[in-house]
Design a protein around this nucleic acid. Structure first.
Lengths: 151, 151
DNA sequence: AAGCTAACTTTGGAAAACAAAGTCAGATAT
DNA sequence: ATATCTGACTTTGTTTTCCAAAGTTAGCTT
């Protein structure tokens, strides 16, 4: 067993990090949310090595986050592109919360940063913790509950 | 420059992933949220190699996520522990959204998974996208806006 | 002085990432 | 028909990171 995997851990955070905590994976999903879907474009945008991109895309497809879709431009042969599945699009919340946190706590000189908006209204949206009855809870007032065993 | 860094990227998601997208970092923060704060306990809980833990803790301290705090048990010499800063505790939202997503989309046999609750009431909380006026927006209805340049 | 313990370093080998070059398959141009 | 172009990958060789085990350090107790 060359590399530690938490894919079968009882902790959902561990399982999620097994994907997103891997180098490049989060950036690939971010670009996919921006509409990028072609192998060569991911390479150009991210500067990722091609063999690594192949592995990551395969992992994302295997996890049900992305799917490999054939397409054909006129006057070209059939090729493949990679698009987020509904499951993958749900990761928007996770990426938004990471982005919101970084915007607040890892500032950088150049002002404007990326953010999410509601498509219908253009209104800015942020990630927050909410109760089932719609109350917003500050992160400080939240507590992590782990059923029993740790890892 | 041996390894690509997005630490100075204009994209906040890239900056956040530069930390959380590194192997082990998210798991360390998760355990820190559970109250783990000693070097040896992180090693025991995670099975992480000690030199890697040293590097990750240093990076987290440098980023302002954790702090190195001296402590002394009676009958022992002074040692150091690692605790989340207020900035670090804000990552609860990000970890919750990753955990919520994984619980929904990366199921595993053994039923119970970890989750966050409101400390005061014990009520379960979940990560969601909300507008500034408190409306909840489904991830599908959200759109990522990137100011200008990509990476 | 010798032993104990927690927090690290050091060391050497294995796995992964990186960069560059090569493969492949069709569609168009010569 | 052969040659060329393009996008999606492999292959190859080097660099970097990860890993596991052993070693170091500092102060307290026996």
């Amino acid at each position: 067993m060359p590399k530690t995997s938490h894919a079968t851990s009882g902790c959902a955070i561990a399982r999620g990090l097994d994907l997103l905590g891997e180098r490049w994976t989060g950036m690939i999903v971010r670009d996919a949310l921006r509409g990028i879907d072609r192998f060569a474009d991911f390479v150009a945008e991210l500067g990722i090595a091609q063999d690594v991109l192949t592995k990551r895309l395969n992992a994302l497809v295997a996890a049900g986050v992305m799917e490999r879709i054939p397409y054909q431009e006129d006057g070209s042969r059939m090729r493949y592109r990679y698009a987020l599945t509904p499951t993958g699009r749900q990761l928007a919340t996770a990426l938004a919360s990471i982005g919101d946190w970084a915007a607040a706590h890892l500032p950088v000189d150049g002002g404007s940063t990326s953010h999410f908006v509601e498509a219908a209204t253009g209104q800015r949206v942020r990630a927050a913790l909410v109760t089932d009855d719609g109350r917003i809870v500050a992160p400080v007032d939240a507590q992590l509950v782990v059923p029993s065993a740790g890892s």
